[in-house]
C-alpha cells in the first residue's frame, strides 16, 4: 500500500515538474519569460523550462545555452517558445521543439541534433514550417 502511494506521489511530481531546458547565459536590455501565464524577470543564470516563452523588447537580446549544448540567441522584438524539451540519452528520449513566432534568432545545434536529428524541430511562425541544421539564422518579418 505504501509503495502504491509512493508511485502515485512520484507520478504527481513528474507531472508537476517541467523539464529544465536551458540557462540564460547572456542578457541585454529588456526581456522576460512567460511561464504558466505569469511574467518572470530574466537575469543571467535564470533557468528556462519546457513551455516557457521568452519575449524581448527593442534593442534587447537573450543568449541561451541548453542542456544538450545547443546555443540559441534571441534578437530584439522577438517571441520564442520552448514547446518541448527532453534530453536523456540513457532512456533514448530526445525532444527539442521550439517556435519562433516573432523576431529573429541564431542557433548552433548541440547533442540532440547530432545524436537524433529528427528530434530537433524549430518552427517559424507557422506550424508547417520547420528548420533543421547546424548553424543558422531565422528571421520572421
Amino acid at each position: 500500500m505504501k509503495i502504491f502511494n509512493l508511485i502515485i506521489l512520484l507520478g504527481m511530481f513528474s507531472f508537476i515538474l517541467a523539464n529544465e531546458a536551458a540557462l540564460v547565459k547572456k542578457l541585454k536590455g529588456n526581456a522576460h519569460i512567460v511561464r504558466e501565464g505569469k511574467e518572470l524577470a530574466i537575469g543571467v543564470g535564470t533557468k528556462v523550462l519546457e513551455k516557457d516563452k521568452i519575449i524581448t523588447r527593442a534593442s534587447s537580446s537573450v543568449g541561451l545555452i541548453f542542456k544538450d549544448n545547443t546555443r540559441i540567441s534571441v534578437g530584439s522584438n522577438s517571441e520564442f517558445t520552448v514547446e518541448e524539451y527532453m534530453f536523456n540519452l540513457s532512456e533514448k528520449k530526445e525532444v527539442f521543439t521550439t517556435n519562433l513566432s516573432k523576431g529573429s534568432l541564431e542557433c548552433v545545434t548541440g547533442l540532440i541534433s547530432k545524436i537524433n536529428p529528427k528530434a530537433f524541430q524549430l518552427k517559424a511562425k507557422t506550424a508547417t514550417m520547420g528548420i533543421r541544421g547546424t548553424h543558422f539564422i531565422v528571421d520572421v518579418n
Partner: peptide, 12 residues
C-alpha cells in the same frame, strides 16, 4: 544580425 551574433553564448 549584429545583435544576434553578440548575444550568442560562447561554445562551452
Amino acid at each position: 544580425y549584429r545583435d544576434l551574433l553578440e548575444a550568442m553564448p560562447e561554445e562551452p
